[in-house]
């Protein structure tokens, strides 16, 4: 596929004598554009492809050389992965923490998004900037004080404690996504509902909520993925109740190759599927029109 598109865009070796410099520039620009796209796609897709091949091959094939280029659809590696001690409980922890993160980031983030979109208040611009700045602090910097505080309050090594940290990471996105969703709903719809007998609350329930529900779901899924993918805080703050990422990180050196591939695959796939499902709402977050 990539060869075909490359060939199509390669300039003719014997240029048309009628070709003006402008068309030459244009085809050169097009060539650069297409090769850029191909390169970037390959950058993302090729590793995932290798991950998939090795996951869907038998442990023997994975550990042998040369490596195959096509999967043999053998579930040996995955079965081994599922049977690995502690793996299933780590998976369960991951789902639990991500689920809690999802709920908390929406419950806290959506009202903030609504306030940002509907009310004028002092320091609104600063507030929006601050929300983003929370992502500017490197987590390693916060990890030690957080760990100390969690141990003191008894939150260390619990799903709730980790979910709190992940919620902090996910909130900027849930606020920005819901802000953009609420802004997309004309205030007149709410005003019309008020004049038709609604209070602020019932108008929200009957008019705003049904319209924004798909977007809220997307924002929730995004929070889920953030928590699902997070490894640093998970590794620092949990010991017994490790999430999948932390568990894999811990066992990476000691485990066989096919286990690493299977674990990587299990981590990547849900994130990919979810992000793909909600991509148009992520564009909305940055104010890009849905295309």
């Amino acid at each position: 596929m990539s060869q075909a598109s490359m060939a199509a865009s390669v300039p003719d070796p014997q240029p048309d004598p009628d070709a003006t410099p402008a068309t030459n520039t244009r085809s050169a620009g097009r060539f650069l554009y297409v090769s850029g796209v191909v390169l970037l796609c390959a950058w993302v897709i090729v590793p995932i492809y290798f991950l998939m091949i090795n996951t869907l091959s038998s442990p023997e094939t994975v550990n042998s050389f040369p490596k195959p280029f096509f999967p043999e659809f053998d579930l040996g590696s995955l079965t081994f992965f599922a049977g690995f001690a502690g793996m299933l409980s780590a998976l369960k922890n991951s789902v639990l923490v991500a689920g809690m993160t999802m709920v908390m980031s929406i419950v806290i983030g959506a009202p903030a998004g609504y306030a940002l979109s509907r009310f004028e208040f002092r320091g609104k611009g600063t507030f929006r900037l601050l929300i983003l700045l929370t992502r500017a602090f490197p987590l390693p910097l916060l990890a030690l004080p957080l760990a100390v505080m969690f141990i003191r309050t008894g939150l260390d090594d619990t799903a709730l404690g980790l979910a709190l940290v992940h919620t902090t990471l996910a909130i900027p996105f849930s606020v920005l996504i819901t802000f953009s969703l609420f802004s997309g709903i004309p205030i007149e719809l709410e005003e019309a509902a008020w004049t038709l007998g609604c209070t602020r609350l019932t108008a929200f329930q009957k008019v705003v909520l049904p319209l924004i529900l798909p977007g809220i779901t997307a924002s929730a899924i995004f929070a889920f993925v953030i928590s699902w993918n997070e490894v640093f805080a998970a590794a620092v703050l949990t010991i017994e109740n490790r999430t999948l990422t932390a568990f894999l990180l811990q066992n990476l050196d000691t485990s066989p190759l096919h286990l690493k591939f299977a674990g990587g695959f299990i981590l990547v796939v849900p994130a990919l599927i979810f992000i793909f499902a909600v991509r148009k709402y992520l564009f909305a977050m940055w104010g890009i029109a849905n295309r």
Binding site: P186, E188, L189, E191, A193, W194, T195, L211
Partner: peptide, 19 residues
């Protein structure tokens, strides 16, 4: 509040509920 005033309003951009 608007709902208790015995009024009804027609808006410039219609404000027909899309759902």
């Amino acid at each position: 509040s608007p709902k208790d005033r015995g009024i009804a309003m027609v808006f410039q951009n219609y404000a027909v509920f899309p759902h």
